[in-house]
Structure formats: structure tokens, C-alpha cells
């Protein structure tokens, strides 16, 4: 049955099957969440009573940094530790065609047919910030289905992707040797999101300089809050164990300090904010599509109404419609 035609009863059944280990049902539910609308809302309701039992690690960094290859080797370490791992790999949607090429699985052959690994490629579908619209809810779905560890690989748009910090528990930022300028330019953002830095392709020239740049950028932080720096050559599997150890130690530290609990609180806040944002945006698109703005636009064009006043009128209309939609 097409995703758009699913009833609340259907999604409940899917959720039940997914929780019992049916990967087809799990995969279908992610599609439902991606598509949004009533069916997605009904999945969200079904998820609400489930606790968040998993741990989530985000991997971000510019295109070409070697994120997918790194994730592939990390999956091996993570599997040995957690037993089962899920990965959400986000790639950009083309703004022109709305299509996407999702190629992360090409690098992940070692785990391609494992029953202990669930890999899902997601297109960003217009979302900025490195994640897809449904990444957060997909993460909660995976947790509800008992996946103890979830990796999220971001788009990699070439700048720091703040969304990953509000979605994951440990953030790994991947750099390459010779990226000193990037470290300088993005210093503030990097410091804000990174829990661990990886210098991947550590066999390439410029390793020491990048490490120095990074260390000096981090020097102002108190020692206990200073992100670890791990060197890897992901294509050869080198450094993966070190990286996994760094992740485990960060996890332990924030769990003990109570920071994990406050991070989770922030994540909920960001998710709720994002959810309202998305619904308002959809409502706003509908408002314009319905022609409700047309007379005001004409008035503005004729000089009879100023922009701010038109905005006030439409914002009131938007709120009225949003309330009606909730009540209806």
C-alpha cells in the first residue's frame, strides 16, 4: 500500500511489527516519517510512550573528508561493542530537481548484508543544517525498535552543521590534514559542536600543522571539556579502535557528569522547535497557495498597505488556520 494512504491503524500495526524485529516494517515507517502528514503524525503518537533507550553518535565534516569510509570502519568497532548498530546516512537533495544521489552504502560493503546492521540513506529534502526533516523522528523510531546504538552521518555541506549537535549525544567532527584554514574560519562553530575531532587521512601531508591549529584553537577550553583529537586512516582501518574508545569515554564522562541528561533535554527542545517550525512552514505554504495573501499583496503593490501591516494580518490568519487544523 502506498505510504500516503496508510491509516492510523496501519501505522500502529507497522510499528508493532517493526518493534518485533521486522525490518521491512521499520523501513516503511521511516518512509512514512519522511513523507510527513497524518500518517507520520500517527507514528509519532505511537512512539511517544516509548523511552529513549539508545545512544546516538553524529559524524559530520566537509564533503571529501572521508566520513562514509570512516563510518564503515567505525561500524565494525561499534558492532563488537553494542551488538547491533543502525546508521542514518544523509545526503543532499538537489534543489532544482528535488532528486538525490545517495551513495554512502557504496563504502559500507563490509556490513551490507548483516542482520545486526541497519543502514538507511536519507535525502535532506530541502532541509538545511546537515540532516533530513525526518532524521530526528527516524532516530526515535530506531530507539523504540530496540537499536541500542545509532550513528548519524550528516550531509557534509562544507560548513559546520549545528543541527547534528541538537540531535546526537556525541558529535564527531571529521577533518583532513591541511585544513588549517578551515579550522580557523570555523573556529567558533567547531568548538560549539565537536565532542571529538578526527583527523582522517592522517597519512597525508600537513597532519602536524592541522593538529597544532586544532590544539591552539582548543587551548582556551578547560581541560575536562577539551575534545579529544583522534588520527585515523579510514581507508586502511587505522585508528578506528582509538576513535571508538574516544566515543565510549565521552559517553561515560557525560553520563556521569549529568550532562547527557541536559543534552537530551536540549534535544527535545530542538526537536519540538523544529516540529512546530515545519508545521508552520507547511501551513504558511498553504496560506499563500490558497490565494489568501493575494489581495494584501495587491494592496502593498498599490501603496495602500505597508509590508509590516500585511504581515500582521497574514500572521493572524496563519495562527487561526493552525489552531483550526489542530482542533479539526
Amino acid at each position: 500500500m502506498a505510504v500516503s494512504q496508510l491509516s492510523a491503524q496501519d501505522t500502529d500495526q507497522l510499528l508493532e511489527r517493526a518493534r518485533a524485529g521486522d525490518r521491512g516494517a521499520l523501513a516503511r515507517l521511516i518512509s512514512v516519517l519522511e513523507r510527513g502528514g497524518d500518517a507520520a503524525a500517527s507514528v509519532e503518537r505511537g512512539l511517544s510512550s516509548r523511552g529513549a533507550g539508545g545512544y546516538t553518535v553524529g559524524i559530520t565534516g566537509a564533503p571529501g573528508a572521508g566520513k562514509s569510509t570512516l563510518v564503515n570502519t567505525l561500524l565494525g568497532e561499534a558492532l563488537a561493542d553494542a551488538g547491533r548498530v543502525a546508521l542514518l546516512a544523509v545526503d543532499p537533495t538537489s534543489p532544482l530537481s528535488r532528486g538525490a544521489l545517495l551513495g554512502d552504502r557504496v563504502r559500507m560493503h563490509s556490513h551490507a548484508a548483516s542482520s545486526q546492521v541497519f543502514i538507511r540513506s536519507m535525502a535532506s529534502r530541502g532541509q538545511l543544517g546537515g540532516l533530513a526533516v525526518a532524521t530526528r523522528s527516524a532516530r526515535r523510531l530506531l530507539e523504540a525498535c530496540g537499536w541500542p546504538l545509532i550513528l548519524i552521518e550528516t550531509v557534509g555541506v562544507g560548513q559546520v552543521e549545528l543541527d547534528v549537535a541538537s540531535t546526537t549525544d556525541t558529535v564527531v567532527v571529521v577533518l583532513n590534514p591541511g585544513w588549517g584554514d578551515e579550522v580557523q574560519a570555523n573556529k567558533a562553530g567547531l568548538m560549539e559542536v565537536a565532542d571529538i575531532f578526527v583527523i582522517n587521512k592522517a597519512d597525508k601531508a600537513g597532519l602536524q600543522a592541522t593538529r597544532r591549529d586544532l590544539e591552539s584553537a582548543l587551548a582556551s577550553l578547560p581541560a575536562e571539556r577539551r575534545p579529544a583529537i583522534v588520527e585515523t586512516v579510514a581507508s586502511e582501518g587505522r585508528g578506528a579502535a582509538d576513535l571508538w574508545a574516544a566515543i565510549a569515554s565521552h559517553r561515560e564522562a557525560i553520563t556521569l557528569s549529568g550532562e547527557l541528561a541536559s543534552r537530551r533535554q536540549q534535544q527535545l527542545r530542538a526537536e519540538l522547535h523544529g516540529l512546530i517550525d515545519a508545521r508552520l512552514e507547511a501551513e504558511l505554504d498553504q496560506l499563500f497557495a490558497s490565494g489568501a495573501a493575494d489581495t494584501h499583496l495587491e494592496a502593498v503593490a498599490a501603496g495602500a498597505l505597508d509590508m509590516a501591516a500585511a504581515g500582521d494580518v497574514l500572521l493572524r490568519e496563519l495562527c487561526r488556520r493552525a489552531s483550526a487544523a489542530i482542533a479539526g
Partner: peptide
């Protein structure tokens, strides 16, 4: 000994 080349193409 050598590991795998990080191929830059996706297909």
C-alpha cells in the same frame, strides 16, 4: 598491509 583505496566515485 595496504587497506583499500577510498574510491571517489559512488557507483
Amino acid at each position: 598491509v595496504f587497506g583499500d583505496w577510498a574510491t571517489p566515485i559512488q557507483t
